[in-house]
């Protein structure tokens, strides 16, 4: 049966028109593409580059000062030096007391108590010592 002009088109008929329209797309001309790209170049956001490293202007002493760690390192070094001088000038009685004269022998020994090796390590000379005691 022939369809009359009075009958609205059905969806499947209409889809043929939409499909034809989807295919009816002319490509943009080269001139248009070039104009769009020119706009893109002209309006491309400017990104700040990373700051350039500063030129080396430090002197030799400043470089050494920096290399050893600056002020904190110098403070530590000074503290260690003062401590060394103090240990050298004062006689470390406590150290001798604890070590029984083993660490700093000779002129530096000021304690009244002195220990022989076997006092500290009775087994060091063998078992004869114990045998004598028992005997």
């Amino acid at each position: 049966m022939a369809k009359t002009d009075n009958q609205p088109m059905q969806d499947d008929e209409l889809d043929l028109f939409f499909e034809a329209a989807r295919q009816d797309v002319a490509a943009p001309t080269d001139a248009l593409m070039a104009a769009i790209m020119a706009d893109a170049q002209a309006h491309m956001p400017v990104v700040d580059p990373l700051p350039a490293p500063k030129a080396q202007t430090k002197g030799v002493f400043a470089s050494i000062w920096s290399a050893i760690g600056g002020l904190p390192a110098a403070a530590s070094l000074a503290t260690a030096t003062v401590a060394g001088v103090w240990i050298g000038f004062t006689q470390p009685v406590q150290l001798e007391t604890l070590s029984g004269g083993l660490v700093l022998a000779g002129d530096y020994v000021t304690t009244d108590t002195s220990y022989a090796l076997e006092d500290l390590a009775p087994g060091y000379l063998g078992t004869t010592l114990f045998a004598e005691d028992e005997g």
């Binding site: 369809k3 009359t4 002009d5 009958q7 609205p8 059905q10 209409l14 028109f17």
Partner: peptide, 21 residues
């Protein structure tokens, strides 16, 4: 919109060769 298109295009069936099944 689709209803209006379907009605409008129906008037051009003959012209577009859709007059007969």
């Amino acid at each position: 919109g689709k209803r209006a298109l379907a009605k409008d295009l129906a008037g051009r069936r003959e012209e577009l060769g859709y007059g007969e099944d």
